[in-house]
Design a binder for these strands. Structure first.
Lengths: 343, 343
DNA sequence: ATTAGCACTCAACGACAATGAGTGCTAACG
DNA sequence: CGTTAGCACTCATTGTCGTTGAGTGCTAAT
């Protein structure tokens, strides 16, 4: 579709624009050296490239900037993933050498480090706790009518919630209840807890415990309901975008930051990403607020089971080579790191 | 110190400036009606007020704006806390009518609502968990060498942490350990846990459990260490500031948002607030990033014991009357709401 | 096919005048 | 004597108008 020379020129323009954030003209390309043609020749090619939709001109007497289509071609065919900064990677690994203990911490840290290394904003989606299974359930009564319900998953994730106890329930009944629940539901996937509660626990409960219906009701409220167990979203470097020249306008900043505050939206955005690395450029993103941003996501997995997603949000003019390389490595590292929890 | 007329004029200027964000001139004051003098007279007074340090002039041919000292006088002597928007308050209360179950949720919600009502940024400091005492301790083994340690306080707050188990410890020893710890430390204030661990639990443990030293060591890591149990900070309306005209400069925005990301700094800032309502105007704040902001904090307490602090961060030109009134009511409501947990 | 040459376009910048909101001062007024 | 009308003055803001220079597109020469 494109001649070699056109590819070279497109590549040069995108590279230059990524560095400078300013429209690049024929002369500066010519001077770079790697395209050995005169400005005039390059101009002709640029004109063609514009006609083909790979370039745009902010106004007649300015240089060219890549269009969405141009970036897309660059990402798909031109970007070379040079040995992504070795120093930074070892840096990343050393951070995690001291074994972190909480899965949440690991994810948050990874997000922070990625944001620091790239100077863009990072968004990480923790492992879906719905894939986990119940390890242990516990009720800690605080006083006569309230208790804390605690759920521990096989991965060490803990959720807790306050529940009000059925009136007049006895301590021993409470203990029996917890015992039965653990006996029957340990090992059950989190998603199926509520349904299994009725099929498995119900009758057993009715045999040993008074008012078993209200107890059952209480238990249902105590267990994390499928929907509300939203995947947690971790953000890193939210303010990094403010250093990018494309965000010198406060209104733009506000719409972006407001989007970043909407956890459910982010969650949906990332969880819809396919496995492996995906690049969504400009208007390829659904949300208008980031129509001049790009989002690169990497989903990591163990044995084909997806564990989580980590993404970088930057201006369309972002350093694709660096970010893709980094995400590739980091996502693989994450999978390794997390494998501890998933044996 | 000031004549009645000067007070009236100062009040009018601050009010006007708070509304308009623009230097206010003698003519506009005169037209307001509540100061029945000609522009010329007002000009003379304004000149005096400037000499006294209550007003400032951006440049010779502009109106006046209040100085820090001017705001201070306004806050201390002039502001009238008119029945702070009844609708908004009932609004606030109805939000909490449906009893929230988690103390964290309550605080976060309060922060969000305050931010919405004021259109400024709110910062809330949760109740210090250090005042709480141990209700229940639990170890849930995940596999042969790791377990989740769970600590429940008397207020229903749950902390959890992963610990690696001493090698080759038996299940029954683990159970004994947990049992002993609960027997000995239930009711002990969180701050004293670690110290009591050695004095109270140590020898008991040595009597019943093998390798009791490594077990003790593990327990110490499992309990929340005093320092790391930082008070949690809840933010609301971080992006609200971006709608304020004083933040049309992205650099300013960045320094502010960066400050808001530093949880420990915020925590220190709020926790140093005295009981009751405090107003810190402009440079009265230590941090340079908010030298043109004001922070109003309210600390709420039950029976003289401070439970937490809630604050509003806005431009110096913020609506003091509204915010102070609101904070006063909200902080009292918070105390009531939380009293449930602290009986 | 490539490139030198040239006319043309247009954002960015600076100079300059016009505008007008606001002041300070002086003199008049009740 | 306190108040106010009048007036000259200041200065940020706005708009106009060349100038500059980076960059293009086209044509003709190589």
């Amino acid at each position: 579709m494109l001649t070699d020379r056109q590819r070279m020129i497109l590549n040069a323009i995108v590279d230059d624009y990524i560095r400078s954030a300013e429209p690049v003209g024929s002369r500066s390309i010519s001077k770079r050296g790697d395209v050995g043609f005169s400005p005039a020749t390059i101009r002709n090619e640029m004109s063609d490239l514009e006609e083909l939709g790979f370039l745009e001109q902010p106004h007649t007497s300015a240089g060219r900037i890549p269009s969405i289509k141009g970036y897309r071609y660059y990402v798909d065919h031109l970007v070379r993933l040079g040995e992504s900064n070795v120093k930074e990677i070892t840096n990343f690994r050393s951070f995690f050498a001291e074994r972190m203990t909480e899965i949440e911490q690991v994810t948050q840290q990874a997000a922070n480090i990625l944001a620091n290394m790239t100077n863009y904003t990072s968004i990480a989606l923790g492992p879906e706790s719905l894939n986990h299974s119940l390890k242990h359930f516990q009720l800690v009564p605080l006083n006569a009518d309230t208790a804390v319900a605690i759920v521990v998953t096989n991965t060490g994730h803990v959720e807790n919630k306050m529940v009000s106890l059925p009136e007049g329930i006895s301590m021993s009944d409470l203990e029996k209840t917890v015992h039965i629940l653990n006996a029957k539901l340990a090992g059950v996937p989190m998603v199926r807890l509520t349904s299994k509660l009725y099929t498995e626990v119900g009758q057993e409960l009715s045999r040993y415990v008074d008012h078993y219906e209200s107890v059952l009701n209480m238990l249902e409220r105590a267990l994390p309901a499928g929907e509300e167990a939203e995947q947690r979203v971790y953000l890193g470097g939210t303010t990094n975008m403010l250093t990018q020249p494309e965000f010198k306008d406060v209104d733009k900043v506000k719409t972006l930051l407001d989007l970043l505050d909407e956890t459910p939206t982010l969650s949906r955005m990332l969880s819809s990403a396919p496995s492996g690395i995906q690049v969504r450029i400009g208007t390829e993103n659904e949300h208008e607020a980031i129509n001049d941003c790009s989002v690169i996501t990497a989903t990591y997995a163990i044995d084909g089971q997806s564990l989580g997603t980590i993404g970088i949000l930057g201006p369309t003019r972002m350093d694709y080579a660096k970010v893709i390389g980094l995400l590739d490595i980091v996502s693989k590292d994450m999978a390794m790191l997390l494998s501890r929890w998933y044996r």
